[in-house]
Every structure is written in structure tokens, then in C-alpha cells.
């Protein structure tokens, strides 16, 4: 079960991209608190403090106690917007926990005993269909992860949600079907060979630059008849060079 993360925040009076960018320039991360039928609040978080918590893991599946200049909120990080190149946080969405305290949260799956699976030993591949599963649970009893043992799993077997033992008060969001979490697939044989053949087939076309470079046969569109003319022009142009 997860403990509460404590984060300090300051109010951000102005909303919008100008204020958000100013906050980033000042070493903060803009964020918003919404939900529980209250008005949304724009806040700033200290960048380093937030980044440490994000790197520690389980940031979106742990309840957070936000201290906004003395006012405390119990929230859950719903989304962390990150920089596409550096993966550093740009903005965080926090949702207030409701009165009943039950929240909808994604819990990561952990697969253990991989060495004791005969299917994986024979060259099978663990194909993870869902890296995390959405569940309903009380905010103070969020499981850190669900553990699935692969012991005795053969190729072709699949693991469904019914195989996961959930603690009391935790139930999956999808209830009407026994959905798949992972399967053990057979090894893909001949993948390397097929690619090699494709590469060989493409090589002569790429190398045959001299006479008819356009005849690489690469695009081969349906309407190639009309478009072969520009390519044919290139061949006469190559003649003076050949004379030299």
C-alpha cells in the first residue's frame, strides 16, 4: 500500500501560457488542481522537488498531499505533461479525491519468476498486452503494483485479470469481461532471413545507378506509364559524362 507524498505548492494567480512560461523560467512547474465539484486552482510546483518524485516512480498511482500555502489538498496526479525530447515535466494535472475517497487509478503489472517458465525457456516471448490495469480503490490503499508469477507458463498460454489477486476494496474498472494482461508467444523464426531477402532484392536496384536509375522498381506506382518519361530524360543526360 502506498504512503502519501507531500508536495509544497504556491498559488499561481494568472492562468494561460504567459504565466505558465514565466513559472517555468522561474524554475517552477505550472500545475492545476481540479475535481470534487470545486473551482479549479492554478498552482506552481518547485521543479526539483517534483522531478525527484516523478523519478522515484509510482507518481501517478500514489495519493499526494499538496500544501498550497497552508491549505492542504489530497489529490492524485492525473497527467504529467513532459517535454517530448528531454522528458522533463512541463505541467501536472491533479485531481482532488472525492468525499468517499474511492479513486480510479492505473496500477502497474510486475511479472516475476520468468526463469521458472518453461515457455520462456524454450524461446517464447512474454507479450505484455497491458503494462498497467485500471482499478477502483480507496486513495489510502493504492497497491504499488500487481505481481504475476510466470511459473509453469507454457507457450500459447495467456494471463487474464482473473489470475490477479487483488487486495480488499480494490476492483478492476473493466468488470464485464476477463481481459488479457499478457501472453506467452512463440519465438518469431525466420525473421532475419526474410529481411535479408528483402535487402538483397533491393540492393541491385540501388546499385544500378548508371543506365536506368529510375528503373529501381521501388515505387512502381500504378500510373507509372506516364511518369516514366522524366526518368527516361535522365538517361540521355548521362551520355556526355560517359563520353569523357
Amino acid at each position: 500500500m502506498s504512503e502519501l507524498i507531500t508536495l509544497k505548492a504556491t498559488a499561481r494567480p494568472r492562468a494561460g501560457k504567459g504565466a505558465a512560461r514565466q513559472a517555468r523560467r522561474d524554475g517552477n512547474v505550472p500545475a492545476v488542481i481540479y475535481g470534487n465539484q470545486e473551482t479549479p486552482e492554478t498552482i506552481n510546483l518547485e521543479y526539483n522537488e517534483l522531478w525527484k518524485q516523478v523519478l522515484r516512480g509510482h507518481f501517478t498511482s500514489t495519493a499526494i498531499e499538496l500544501d498550497v500555502q497552508g491549505t492542504k489538498h489530497i489529490v492524485l496526479a492525473r497527467d504529467v505533461q513532459v517535454d517530448p525530447v528531454r522528458d522533463t515535466p512541463l505541467h501536472v494535472d491533479f485531481q482532488r479525491v472525492g468525499k468517499d475517497g474511492v479513486i480510479r487509478v492505473s496500477i502497474p503489472m510486475h511479472f516475476v519468476n520468468e526463469t521458472q517458465s518453461p515457455g520462456l525457456k524454450r524461446g517464447g516471448v512474454l507479450n505484455i498486452v497491458r503494462h498497467d490495469v485500471e482499478v477502483y480503490c480507496p486513495y489510502d490503499k493504492i497497491p504499488r503494483y500487481f505481481e504475476i508469477s510466470l511459473e509453469g507458463m507454457e507457450i500459447g498460454r495467456s494471463i487474464h485479470i482473473s489470475a490477479v489477486t487483488m487486495p480488499e476494496g480494490v476492483s478492476p474498472v473493466i468488470k464485464n469481461r476477463d481481459f488479457t494482461i499478457a501472453t506467452i508467444a512463440g519465438a518469431l523464426k525466420g525473421e532475419e532471413e526474410t529481411t535479408t531477402t528483402t535487402a538483397e532484392a533491393g540492393a541491385p536496384a540501388a546499385d544500378a545507378k548508371g543506365a536506368a536509375p529510375a528503373a529501381g522498381g521501388k515505387a512502381a506506382p500504378a500510373a507509372a506509364a506516364g511518369k516514366a518519361a522524366p526518368a527516361a530524360k535522365a538517361a540521355p543526360a548521362a551520355k556526355p559524362a560517359a563520353k569523357k
Binding site: G210, A237, A238, A241, K244
Partner: peptide
Amino acid sequence: KPAEVRMGSG
């Protein structure tokens, strides 16, 4: 364009 070909000609 092929090697040693003058500019132009498409």
C-alpha cells in the same frame, strides 16, 4: 541525379 550530370533536365 547521376554522377557528372549537368544541372537541369528535370
